[in-house]
Amino acid sequence: MTQIPLTYYLILSAFLLCSGLLIVLIKKNAVFVLIGIELMLNAANLNLVAFSKFDPELNGQVFAIFSVVIAAAEAAIALAILLNIYKTYDTSDLDDLNTLKH
């Protein structure tokens, strides 16, 4: 089985990160922004896993599993906050959530 070179992983990861970043920057809906953040997180995870392939101690993979767990917890909290915001302000549009500005 031929090895897939690291560069491919990194390119995919960069693509994921850029897509996530674009989603975070462009989309107005908070849910999409969260999804963008997940994408960026997973891009990082992909990097960790890809680099750990060349690490005999597999520290990167362990770290990635941690990261996935924490991402799940974070997503749960973020969604909970989002739900509360939606309940309170009747909107999930980020441009309307500007009370801190004033």
Binding site: V24, I26, K28, V33, L94, D95
Partner: peptide, 13 residues
Amino acid sequence: QSGKVQNQLIWMV
């Protein structure tokens, strides 16, 4: 300092 999160993010990036 527009107060919009995404603008600030753009500047940050």
